[in-house]
Computed example of a mutant assay.
Amino acid sequence: MVLLGSSKRPDLLEAASVLDPEDPEDKKKLNALTEQAKDSAGANEKSRKGTYLHDLSEYVDRGDPLPKAISGADLDDMAAYMMATSVLTVVAIEQFVAVPELSVGGTFDRLSYYEGPGPDGKPIAGNFITDTKTGTIEYGKLKMASQLAVYSRGKLYDHTRFPVDASDKKAFAAWKKTEFPAEQAAEAYSPLPPVNQDWGIIVHLPAGTGTCSLYWVDLNIGWALANLALTIRKARSTKGAMKPFVMQAT
């Protein structure tokens, strides 16, 4: 992708040729040039398209009219999305949750109510974490299961109670060292509405295809993987596993 982008933007190569990769400031500039080259090659096009479809789906789920400038292909995608998700009732949109026991957090797409046949064909009802994917889902099934499992076990977290300008490095560094009273920290958390922790739902909306499909995701498998990831993360910080071999002088 970088080579392809550079062939389309020779000015990027010229700008990079005078930079020293060992210099910290020049390294930042090289990274920025690399991103520009990847962008020129279309590496970020799918990501931008996916973000756009996510935005459009919010119009649908809020019951708002779609933008007038929407393309025919995007309109087909939204029609497919409306049809596929007609069995779901949106309870919450884009909510940030935190899972203190894993020291992670994230924003789920939807919390949706569903009543009907479950993954085993038997009746099921309740709130489900629902996540929309606009790219391929062939190779990320376990990651998605883990992601939704974490969301389902999270607590709503109001980060606006502790404001900070993350772009200001000094302010952000000082903020991270700030100690808040336990009572104040606890007030930032609130429980999710009752949510199914066994199953989640993936809404697969491949961009530009005019198709949309729903998939059940096993959150028990996902939760086991999330805890495994925590174990691995802790293991990576283990020190003292290897020591120099010292020969005894004779």
Rank of each mutant, 00 (worst) to 15 (best):
A207K: 04
W199C: 06
P163H: 14
H204C: 07
L205A: 13
E183C: 09
L228G: 04
A226D: 03
G222I: 12
I201N: 06
P193M: 13
E187H: 05
T209A: 02
L205V: 01
F162E: 11
T178L: 07
I201W: 02
S190H: 08
K177R: 09
L219D: 01
F172I: 09
V217K: 06
D165R: 09
K177C: 06
G210P: 01
E187G: 07
T160G: 01
A186K: 13
N220D: 12
N227E: 14
P181R: 05
A173L: 03
W175M: 05
T178M: 08
D158A: 15
S190N: 05
A224K: 13
W175A: 11
W216G: 11
A173Y: 00
V217L: 15
P193T: 10
P206K: 00
D218F: 10
P193S: 12
P194K: 10
W216S: 14
Y157F: 15
L156C: 05
D218A: 07
V195Y: 08
K176P: 03
D158E: 12
Y189P: 01
S190P: 05
H159T: 11
W223L: 10
L192C: 11
W175K: 13
P163M: 15
P181A: 14
P181Y: 06
T160F: 06
I202R: 06
N196H: 09
S213M: 14
W175L: 06
A186Y: 04
G210V: 12
P163D: 11
E187S: 12
F180S: 04
F172V: 08
N227S: 11
S167L: 11
L225S: 11
L156Q: 07
D168K: 11
H159L: 09
V164Y: 06
K176W: 04
W223V: 14
K169D: 03
T209V: 04
L205Y: 02
N227M: 15
A207Y: 00
T211N: 02
L225H: 10
W223H: 13
V203I: 15
C212Q: 00
T211H: 03
A182P: 01
W199E: 12
P194C: 15
Q197H: 12
P206Q: 01
N220R: 14
T160A: 09
P193K: 07
H159N: 08
T211G: 04
I221V: 14
F180C: 02
N196C: 13
A224F: 02
N196S: 05
T178P: 00
H204G: 07
P194G: 14
V195L: 10
P181D: 08
D165H: 03
D165C: 09
V203G: 07
I221K: 12
P181H: 03
I201T: 03
I201E: 02
L225Q: 08
T209W: 00
S213P: 03
P181T: 12
G222E: 06
T160V: 13
A173G: 07
K176I: 07
D168T: 14
H204S: 12
N227K: 15
S213E: 13
L219P: 02
A171C: 04
C212T: 01
A185Y: 04
D165Y: 00
T178E: 03
